[in-house]
Design a protein around this nucleic acid. Structure first.
Lengths: 91, 91, 91, 91
DNA sequence: CCGGGAGGAGAGGTCC
DNA sequence: GGACCTCTCCTCCCGG
């Protein structure tokens, strides 16, 4: 056993220790970014509350934002097609 | 202890048995309806595949069906409001 | 023009009519199965309410049903691995 | 009409202009926080990829993180109850 | 075979 | 306190 790993002979326990450290590090990194996500989500929620207080309809605003996210060309295409379908089935 | 419950004296074990039977019954009932749900979902999926094969856009058809689910008056209201918002922000 | 299609000469309008019929048929088929889905979902919800009334915890029952859905071998594997991870990070 | 609002007499057009500005401001604020959310989500995704590359099972790690989010007392309660239920239905 | 996107389920917040 | 409804998360399916 020529290597310099900690522990001589069977070193599975040491390996497990390394893996445990690795895993813990990953988990903590994830939890950190999840804090960021959660904070931003809270911010967004507050904006929607504010917006509602100002008399805007949050549901419609969500749709609006969804529209703005789309590629303009594609959005237009889809809206045109939807109009065709609506006409076809009579909505 | 005048009742005819199985087991004399402490009958907590018997109670647990009863609860176990109850729980199993509930679980099996749920699983049965979930089979129904799953089957119907499969059916729907197949229809969408068929529809796609016929040249229709499944995504748009989903929107169409969503529109049909809405109350007509409310749908019109929301669409009108959305138009107002779109105009306001320039979408 | 020997056929009996409505419209003479160019029949794109007729084609659109055909497509409209097709689309309507698809939509109605979908809506029919969605009624089935909705009914079954309602049934399930009622069972959960009943079960809650009997003193069982619906949330845990959901997990239980999830476990029953899994392949036993795979379930055991995943539980074993989770135990390893829990031990590693100390949960 | 002593105020300095743009437009004389009926000023609904001006009001609409104000509302449009307000709405645009809200929308842009929301979109800004959504950028933050999206960035953080991307970060998390990358960590999961990295973790997977290191030989960990992402799915199980997700469960692990879910467990860590829970209140310890409540977590133990729920796990105990789940064990009871599992025993009852034989999982 | 993997990544992205859509659908469904679960959890939390809100209103009654 | 319960019921509805929304939002988030997870899973599954399709496309590359």
């Amino acid at each position: 056993m020529p290597d310099g790993s900690p522990g001589v002979g069977h070193n599975s326990a040491a390996d497990k220790g390394i893996a445990a450290k690795q895993l813990t590090a990953f988990v903590e990194r994830i939890e950190r970014v999840e804090v960021d996500i959660s904070n931003a989500q809270t911010d967004r929620k507050e904006i929607y509350q504010e917006l509602k207080g100002a008399g805007f309809d949050p549901k419609i605003v969500r749709k609006l934002i969804g529209l703005r996210k789309m590629d303009p060309a594609e959005r237009q295409e889809q809206e045109a097609l939807l109009d065709v379908y609506r006409d076809a089935v009579g909505v």
